[in-house]
Amino acid sequence: MNIDAIKDLAYKMADDQLIIGHRHSEWIGLGPLLEEDIAFASKAQDKVGQSLAFYKLLEALGGQDPDTLAFGRTAAGFHNAIFAELPNGEFDFSIIRHFLFDTAEFIRFEMLAASAYQGFSNLGKKFKGEVQYHILHANEWLQQLGNSDDKTIARMQNTLDYALPYALGVFEPSKWEEALLAEGIFAGERELQARWEERVHAALKQTGLTLPSLTTVEPVYGGRYGQHSEHLQPLLDEMGEVINSEPGAEW
């Protein structure tokens, strides 16, 4: 099998989960309701745990240990979508991102569960079950806020329009797309995006929000190739502050 293609996809997923997991964890103690502090904490643990599993897989493929991979690279070495690294902003952005991003994650894991590469199919089967709950949570909030009063609906629509270019960046074409498809490792970003659009459309139809025609939306690409926004490096600096303060120490 094409190991370089496998590694590239594993890095994307590991970095996505690590970064979005950290963003989720920033809500702990600051949510609009205690119940949301708890929910975001729970999702953060799932996401960071999922990233750990992918880093372990990379380690088994000859990479460094997970702590070094996660906390020892600079932004240029990260393959997460820019969407994941954007600051939490207010609760509306966090919920819209949670909905758009996790819908894509869920489908990705579902597709991975059918992978010809066993390392991926094992993790895909395991994690789609976890992300199922994240989607339930996101959709519940989408329904509540997307069917609330006019002011709230307008606020959510604005945020949705703002988020869409970043959401499409999740599906940035991979240079390994054909190799992944040919070997049955992964059905590809194009297929993922098509399935995502269907689900997103269906969920939004049950709210007062409208999905603009996606052909008019210019995707924000770059993240998958290490070109990030100004928000990633400061986050990575903070994540590595303690562990990199005493190289070789155990914590």
């Binding site: 702990i28 643990q45 914590w251």
Partner: peptide, 29 residues
Amino acid sequence: ALPEGTWITRAPGFKRKLGLMAKVQDEVG
């Protein structure tokens, strides 16, 4: 939850980070 919560991002390594997240979550619970 606030003084400990500020250490989640900086917690050194996966093991401590996952432990601390779970702990602070418990406190809010």
